[in-house]
């Protein structure tokens, strides 16, 4: 399942820079800040997980980075460019795979490839098939979308996102709707793919263990308005096992930090 694919991302410097960003929504005619004065730097090739309770604004933050929404204050910079709107350089995956039912599996992966100008026409199919193989779905390229299970759909969405080779991959609770066994398999697969690609990833989740399992760094958010409460560097060898004791301990410590209680376990 693991294949080495050359990636554009250089493993140096700051890839993404969120500077003093505030976002407000109109709720019942009153403008309410959803996230307030958030600053975050993400290094190129870094896997950052943003964790927080529902409604803390973590998905909003991801939408801002994707360019699907715009901040009232502050700015977000990708490399040296300020983010103005959506771009295929910052590809986003959602909780729902959102595959297009009028295309088959291969067609869905091809959709993003056709929008990537740097990929020559004749290489598209080859690339699409390669990424489908990487997520373990090489045999399903001609399947209809509704014939796939939830986990398989999310794999296709992952292949679709990776194939276009974005600078940053944004993932908004991509595993939240899956059953535990499928989820654990996908943690494993995603880690292997990431280790071979070293892509910059920003993943939002409410599952602290998931964040510890996947991330180089776990960013803790609380609401409301959403602010960054704390950050944790996770220095554990990969691939990590979500069920391992040390991982569970780290996750428990972060959970306590979230609740404001002192850490129970030592070693963060």
């Amino acid at each position: 399942m693991v294949a080495v694919v050359e990636s554009r991302a250089e493993v140096t410097g700051t890839e993404l820079s969120i500077r003093n960003v505030t976002k407000q929504f109109n709720i019942k005619g009153k403008s309410t800040p959803v996230i307030k004065d958030i600053s975050l730097e993400v290094r190129a090739g870094e896997f950052v997980c943003i964790v927080g309770p529902s409604g803390c604004g973590k998905s909003t933050l991801l939408n801002l980075v994707a360019g699907l929404e715009h901040p009232e204050e502050g700015a977000i910079w990708e490399a040296k460019e300020q983010i103005q709107g959506p771009s295929r350089d910052r590809l986003m995956m959602f909780q729902d795979a959102a595959l297009f039912p009028w295309l088959d599996v291969l067609g869905n992966v091809m959709f993003s490839l056709k929008l990537a100008p740097q990929i020559p026409k004749e290489k598209r199919i080859e690339l699409a098939v390669r990424y489908l193989r990487m997520v373990g779905l090489g045999r399903f390229r001609r399947s209809f979308v509704h014939e796939l299970s939830g986990g398989m759909k999310q794999r296709v969405a992952l292949a679709r996102a990776l194939a276009a080779d974005p600078s940053i991959l944004l993932m908004d609770e991509p595993f939240a709707a899956l059953d535990a066994m499928t989820r654990e398999q996908l943690y494993f697969d995603l880690q292997h793919i990431w280790m071979s690609q070293k892509k910059t990833v920003l993943l939002v989740t409410h599952n602290i263990r998931e964040a510890v399992c996947l991330g180089d760094r776990v960013v803790l958010m609380t609401g409301s308005p959403g602010i960054i409460k704390d950050q944790f560097e996770i220095d554990m060898p990969r691939p990590r096992d979500i069920n391992s004791v040390s991982l569970a301990q780290t996750a428990t410590n972060i959970t306590h930090a979230l609740k404001g209680a002192p850490a129970v376990f030592q070693g963060i």
Binding site: A66, G67, L68, P86, S87, R88, R90, L91, M92, F94, D96, A98, F100, F111, S112, L115, A116, R160, A164, L170
Partner: peptide, 10 residues
């Protein structure tokens, strides 16, 4: 969601 997904793919 289809429009959002398509937008982020460019």
């Amino acid at each position: 969601l289809f429009h959002r997904v398509a937008s982020t793919m460019g």
